[in-house]
Simulated assay, not measured.
Amino acid sequence: MSQLLNLYKSAGADQFTAAVCQFAPYFSTISPQFTDLQPNRAEATVPFRREITNHLGTVHAIALCNAAELVAGTMTDASIPAGARWIPKGMTVQYLAKAKTDVRAVADGSQVAWTQPGDHEVPVDIFDTQGTKVFHARITMNIKID
């Protein structure tokens, strides 16, 4: 089991979120809260706050990208074989609707061949509180297997 997944299971969502934001401080700018982490799935919420809005009063594009990378990375870590390593290489995004509420980011790795080295695309969807998909990303993760 990955160290991140072990920490999530042992410490709980609140302490896990705090630890991730301590380890990678930039994620703290969106004040995330993990609600699920397991192999092939991660989910976190991001509260709507003025600090992450744009000139339109909606959640800023980069805040959405930040949330997507957070859930994709933690899910990747929880999904790869023991001893494997990963790094994000790129991200393609689609802004589908204005995000005017809290948002929920969901990474789904169920279609990723985690035991194969190389580049893999991780899909992430972000929804507002009404369930409208406001954002979609495909994050390319490079997997190295020892």
Rank of each mutant, 00 (worst) to 15 (best):
A44I: 08
P117F: 06
F16H: 06
V103R: 00
Y8H: 13
A82H: 13
A99P: 11
D36S: 09
I80M: 04
I143C: 01
S28T: 05
V71D: 08
F127N: 05
H55M: 14
L96W: 01
P88H: 01
L4S: 07
C21V: 13
A107I: 11
A107K: 08
P39G: 01
A99Q: 03
S110P: 09
Q22Y: 02
G118A: 13
V124I: 11
T45W: 03
P32C: 09
T132K: 14
I30A: 03
E69R: 02
T53K: 04
I87V: 15
L5H: 15
I139P: 05
Q111R: 15
Q38Y: 08
K89S: 14
V122C: 07
H120Q: 14
W86N: 12
R41H: 13
W86E: 04
S31L: 07
K144Y: 10
F135T: 11
V46R: 00
D108I: 02
L64H: 02
K9P: 02
T74Q: 14
F135Y: 15
T35Q: 12
A107D: 04
T53E: 14
F16L: 00
A97R: 06
E51V: 08
G131D: 08
L56E: 10
T76N: 03
F23D: 06
T140I: 14
D77F: 06
